[in-house]
Structure formats: structure tokens, C-alpha cells
Amino acid sequence: MNLVQQLINGLIIGHAYALIAIGWTVLLGVARLVNFGHGQMYMLAAFVTWWGVAGLGLPYPLAILLAMAGGVLLGLVMQLTMLRLTFAQDLVSIMIVTLGFGHVMRGLAGLLFGGNPQVLETPLSWIDFEIAGAWVTAQDLLIVVAAIAVFLLLRLVLERGALGRTARMVAEDPKLAQLGGIDVRRVYLAVFAFEGAAVALAAALVAPRTPILTSIGFEEVIITFVVVVLGGIGSIGGSYLAGIGLGLFTALFGGFVSPAYATSAAFGVLILVLVLRPGGLALGAKGGRA
């Protein structure tokens, strides 16, 4: 009986992980870029949502949109600052610049929102029901539904059709894409704006599950990194499966062995998978073509 409940826990946690990682999946898959300020963007979006609900008294859906708008803005600002580095595909400098942005965001958040923990109260968190002996809130279900919806949408848009082709062309050779008439600059900006919106959506939906502090964010980057690497660079389906897998593993290992070592064990599994299958799970994007 415990097993079923831990599985349910794991599925919810897994969808949350997948949703948090979706921005990076596109970022890495389309633009071959990284964003080490990802965790701090998550934290900022969570606090903006909280402020929208608790401070401005907005209804929850509006607060989510506010956070997403903020995320888009943040993403655009970051990418505009880094455009030259992006074009030069100078990955190391991009890592450091985004890391720097992350620290700045953390300081700013500390000044704006203080050091006290806050709880992001949403109406859906108070609606709960029992499934197979486990208590699940409507918020949890929203996370699952939203994650699936976003992944399906992305899969549709990016893996077929013109947008997907453009994405893969820019990912492979941005200079050559220019010769094809593509405004690569616009693509990079769009990708970073998406990353901002996606991580903000994830924060607005997932952050209500635990109290938020301006010092959080580091764990979110680690999770995202694991999910994206495990899923295979650029693979939408792979990221989804990796997220679910990581969530299930966390729940099952934590439930049947010990929560204290779940993260270490997860990394152990990551190493094992990468040794056996260096490309990660890598489903979807480059399916078997004749």
C-alpha cells in the first residue's frame, strides 16, 4: 500500500521536476546555451507570484501571468546583455555571466523581499482528496496537467514543422542559418524569453508546495541539470521521462531507503546511465529515420 502512495508522490514530484527543467531543455536544445541563473529566476518568480497574491491581492491566475511576464522580461534582458557571447558560442563565458546574473538576482531578492520565509498560499492548495490512500491537492494535479500540456505543446511545435526546423538549424550552425535568411538574433531572444516564461510558470505552480526563501534556487538548478543531461540534450521526450524518472526515484528511494541520501543516490544513477548510454535517454528529436 505504501508503494502506491510513494508512486503517486513520485509522479507529482516528477512532473514538478520536468516542468522546472523545460526552459533549459529548449535553451540547450535550440540555442546550445546554458543559464546558471535558472535557480534564482525560479526563486524570483516564486516571490513575484507571492507578492502578487499576498501583496497586491491579485487572483492566483493573474499572479501567475504577472510572474511569467516578469520572467520574459528577465530573459530578454539577460540575452540582450549576452548577445555577442551567444553568437560566438562562447559557452564558458555564458556560464559565468549567467552565474553572475544569478547572484545579482539573489541579492536583489534579498533586498526586495527580505530574508523571511513565506508561504505561497493558493486556493487550489486547500482542495484535497484521497487517491489510493494518498492525500493529493488540486495544486498537485495542476502541476501534473500543466507539465504534460507544456511538453505536448513543445513536442508539437518543435519536432515538426517550420519552427522545429528553424530551431534545429540554429542549434547546429547559427552562421549557416543566417545565410538561409533566418534572423538568428531574434531566435536567441525568443528562446531566452521562453526560458524566462517557462521557469516562471514552473515556480508559480510548484513553489506553493513548500515555504520559499530568497536563498533557494541552487537545488532547482541541480535538478534541472540532471533532468536535461539524463534526458539527452535537445530531446523533449527525453526530458519529460527523465523528470518523471527522477521524481519516482526520489520518492521510492526516499520512501524505502532514506530521504537523507536520495540526492546522492540519484547522482549515482545519473553517472551509471551516462556511462551505459552517453547520449542520455534522447527520445523523440532524432528518431530512427531510414
Partner: peptide, 11 residues
Amino acid sequence: PEGGAVFMRLT
């Protein structure tokens, strides 16, 4: 351009 102007990972 000189030396190959196609996207290898596309069909």
C-alpha cells in the same frame, strides 16, 4: 559558402 553549406542533422 565554401566547403559545405548544409545542415548535417537535417534530412
